[in-house]
């Protein structure tokens, strides 16, 4: 099992940073709310990958990193449900899923 993985965690960490940056970039640049939600998911998954990597390479006996990763998946799903439910209501009201169109309240 171990032999399938490389000896140091750097490649995993680099990938996780890349994923996080991609998520951040998406969140910052896209105006479609669905895309922003996807960006958030990416950021969450980068963290999950980090946890797994550290847990594995530090040979944590409690597997706390693994547990954390599973928890992240669960909570990410819950968050997506909430976000999409509200987005649905917004779409029904305004026929749009763009952030520009949900700026009634300001000042």
């Amino acid at each position: 099992m171990t032999s399938l993985l490389s000896e140091n965690p750097n490649s995993y960490l680099i990938i996780s940073v890349l994923i996080f940056s991609a998520g951040m970039f998406t969140v910052l640049t896209r105006k479609n709310i669905l895309a922003i939600i996807m960006g958030i998911e990416l950021m969450l998954n980068a963290s999950a990958l980090n946890f797994i990597t550290f847990s594995f390479f530090r040979k944590s006996t409690l597997y706390s990193g693994h547990v954390f990763a599973i928890l992240i998946i669960v909570l990410a799903a819950a968050e997506a449900v909430v976000a999409l439910a509200i987005l649905l209501a917004i779409f029904q009201q305004r026929k749009s899923v763009m952030t520009d169109d949900i700026s009634d309240m300001k000042g």
Partner: peptide, 9 residues
């Protein structure tokens, strides 16, 4: 819904 959406994101 507007505030809820912003809050969520």
């Amino acid at each position: 819904s507007e505030a809820g959406m912003k809050y969520t994101l």
